[in-house]
Each structure stands twice: as structure tokens, then as C-alpha cells.
């Protein structure tokens, strides 16, 4: 798997990270090396092996449908970069 500039650009777009040209070049090179290393997994026979998403045999963790107090508005917005009244403000979305 070759990680070239296009792949890095695409993945950076999906992850919403702006990269400088210099970063893109460097990351492409580093990721290429890492992916080559990771490709070692292709040597493992995983036929009939089920994937492990949860390491412990825990299941059916449920919560009763009982309301608890919500966060007061001042605490909701205390960290907001752009509070607007009781709302979070973001750049105008044009659809």
C-alpha cells in the first residue's frame, strides 16, 4: 500500500485537518513507513478467527429511564469559544 500525497490529502480531508504542504509530504513519508510495518499482519492466518471489539464478556449494561438534573446553562457554555445567548455559535452554514 503506497501512501502518497493524494491519500494523505483525502484522509486529512475526512479528518478535517488542514496540513501545510511540507506537513503533507512528511506525513506521507512517515505513514508509508508505518503502514509497511503494519502490513506484517497480512502474514497472520485469521481464517475462522472472530474479531475482538470488546475484550471482556460484559453485556446488557442498561440504565433505568429515570431523569437526572441537566447541567445549568452557565456550565454548558463556560468553555464555548463563541457563546451566543443560550446557544453555541458557529460560522454560518451554507447548504
Amino acid at each position: 500500500m503506497a501512501i502518497n500525497k493524494e491519500v494523505v490529502d483525502h484522509v486529512a480531508y475526512l479528518a478535517r485537518i488542514r496540513l501545510s504542504d511540507e506537513e503533507t509530504v512528511r506525513l506521507a513519508q512517515q505513514l508509508e513507513g508505518i503502514v509497511a510495518f503494519i502490513d506484517a499482519l497480512k502474514n497472520v492466518n485469521v481464517e475462522h478467527i472472530s474479531p475482538t471489539s470488546h475484550i471482556l464478556p460484559v453485556q446488557n449494561v442498561l440504565r433505568d429511564d429515570v431523569p437526572v438534573r441537566s447541567l445549568p446553562i452557565d456550565k454548558v457554555l463556560v468553555n464555548a469559544p463563541q457563546p451566543e445567548g443560550d446557544f453555541f455559535g458557529v460560522p454560518k452554514i451554507i447548504e
Binding site: E84, G85, D86, F87, F88, G89, V90, P91, K92, I93
Partner: peptide, 10 residues
């Protein structure tokens, strides 16, 4: 909620 120059989130 979309305003003139900003969008608001609830």
C-alpha cells in the same frame, strides 16, 4: 438555527 452571518446550535 441559521441567522444572517452565524449559525446557532441547541
Amino acid at each position: 438555527i441559521h441567522k444572517d452571518d452565524i449559525s446557532l446550535v441547541d
